[in-house]
Design a protein around this nucleic acid. Structure first.
Length: 435
DNA sequence: CAGCAGCGGTCGCGCATAAT
DNA sequence: ATTATGCGCGACCGCTGCTG
């Protein structure tokens, strides 16, 4: 039986298109999103690097604005990436993308959205790339994109809804984690930046049930190294004096170790700077891998729980706290900082470096001509605020379970995404049907 | 010879303009 | 006016070759 297909353009009522002209930007106003906001990791556009347009521009400048449930399609850069437009519409769209409005008589947007995100369509779109330097998808080629159709609109809607339900659960998880992370940061700020950690003044020591230290008049002492007051009894040390070791395998390549990258699914992931972003490991699918033999040669000293991964350049100063899975190979541009447990808890050091006094020092210590980075000897000189050990323990007891929970939720999210992307093609070709 | 700093090249993005 | 593509830059990537 010949599979049913529809021409993409025949399914659309309108195409919102503001390509070819540059939107006048203002300091504030209504958000304007660019192609970098359209990612398959999110149903709706993200708001990274958003710019703004004023009211007048919003009203008069655009040819058209997207409406809720339109599908935003990227034309240039990574052509074919799509996101849905939420209700109400919280942005205008800049150049290099188009908004598809489905004809409800002909197709449900949920289904078209899922299909457009499938590997099948994404690969098709790749074949139409033009442009010598930057891949570009021509509007005219939309006519060449055919959308596979199922036996009935009900089935199509069900497929679209499965895709969206899984995607929404993934977003919910991400949202939950963002909140957990924000809570952790708030606690850190409250205790170690504002110094309002709980303190039992009668006993003269930190206690979970105590009063906020600084605002209750706890004694502060001026510290010349940090150039500000810190609680009495705390110290400031060079990072060098807070670590057991700093693992550094930058510059190692498989060739040098008489091996090669291995693409087996059971290979060990080699993490480079590009894989660490905002406290998470990212894009691990595209990371290089090594086999066990090479791994042992490369990393005689393995990573352990509590190690802090930090990028050294391009960009410098991204962090990841290792919990749970530790079997990673350290590739280019990554240090692993291992806390000296008699001085500082790893969780405290992680927050101090990535959120507290560390990051600004790291960023101001960068050097280099083409690529900016930090040298290991400079990194070791970074000043670290070391709280009283008992307070560190209190903090760690609260934070560690929370960080673990975040890790577990991230794993679940990853799993859901795998299921979704594995299921979609089978739903599309009718191998699996929804009843 | 191992460790590691940083170089040269590519990619993708925002924007502008050439082509139609 | 609309559509296609060139330009320049910063982010990023893999690797080379210097140095102790």
């Amino acid at each position: 039986m010949k599979a049913k297909v529809s021409n993409l353009t025949s399914l659309l009522l309108t195409i919102v298109d503001n390509r070819g002209k540059t939107v006048p930007i203002s300091e504030s106003g209504f958000p304007l999103i660019a192609t970098n906001c359209i990612k398959h990791s999110s149903i709706y556009p993200t708001s990274e690097n958003v710019r703004y347009v004023d009211d007048k521009t919003k009203k008069n400048w655009f040819r058209a604005h997207p409406k809720p449930n339109d599908i935003i399609f990227v034309n240039r850069g990574t052509p074919g990436r799509v996101c849905l437009v939420p209700d109400p519409v919280p942005f205008c769209v800049a150049q290099d993308m188009m908004g598809f409005r489905c004809d409800p008589e002909k197709i449900d947007f949920q289904y078209l959205f899922a299909v457009l995100r499938s590997d099948y369509i994404q690969k098709k779109i790749e074949n139409f790339h033009v442009g010598l330097v930057i891949p570009h998808f021509k509007k005219g080629d939309l006519d060449n994109i055919t959308i596979p159709r199922l036996a009935s609109r009900e089935e199509e809607l069900a497929v679209g809804e499965i895709y969206l339900t899984l995607s929404k659960k993934i977003e919910l998880n991400n949202c939950l984690n963002a909140q957990l992370e924000a809570m952790a940061k708030t606690l850190y700020d409250y205790w170690f930046v504002q110094f309002d950690f709980p303190f039992d003044f009668a006993q003269g020591k930190p206690a979970a049930t105590g009063k906020p230290y600084k605002s209750s008049g706890g004694k502060m002492v001026y510290n010349p190294e940090l150039k500000r007051e810190i609680p009495e009894g705390w110290s400031v040390k060079n990072l060098n004096n807070c670590v057991d070791t700093i693992l550094d395998h930058r510059g190692k390549t498989p060739k040098k170790l008489a091996g090669e990258w291995c693409n087996d699914s059971d290979g060990i992931i080699a993490i480079s700077a590009k894989n660490i972003k905002n406290g998470k490991l990212v894009n691990l699918d595209s990371a290089n891998k090594v086999n066990n033999e090479l791994f042992n040669k490369w990393m005689p000293d393995k990573l352990i729980e509590g190690d802090i991964l930090m990028t050294s350049e391009a960009p410098a100063g991204e962090f990841y706290f290792i919990l749970g899975e530790t079997k990673y190979c350290m590739s280019q541009r990554v240090f692993a900082i291992r806390a000296n447990l008699s001085v500082i808890f790893p969780s405290v050091l992680y927050f101090e470096l990535s959120k507290g006094n560390g990051l600004s020092q790291i960023l101001s210590s960068l050097s280099g001509s083409t690529v900016f980075g930090i040298r290991q000897d400079v990194l070791r000189e970074i000043k670290v605020l070391v709280p009283e050990i008992y307070l560190q323990e209190l903090f760690n007891n609260i934070l560690l379970p929370q960080l673990r929970k975040i890790e577990v939720i991230d794993q679940e999210t990853k799993c859901l995404a795998e299921i979704r992307d594995w299921l979609l093609p089978m739903l599309m070709n009718g191998q699996v049907t929804v009843k």
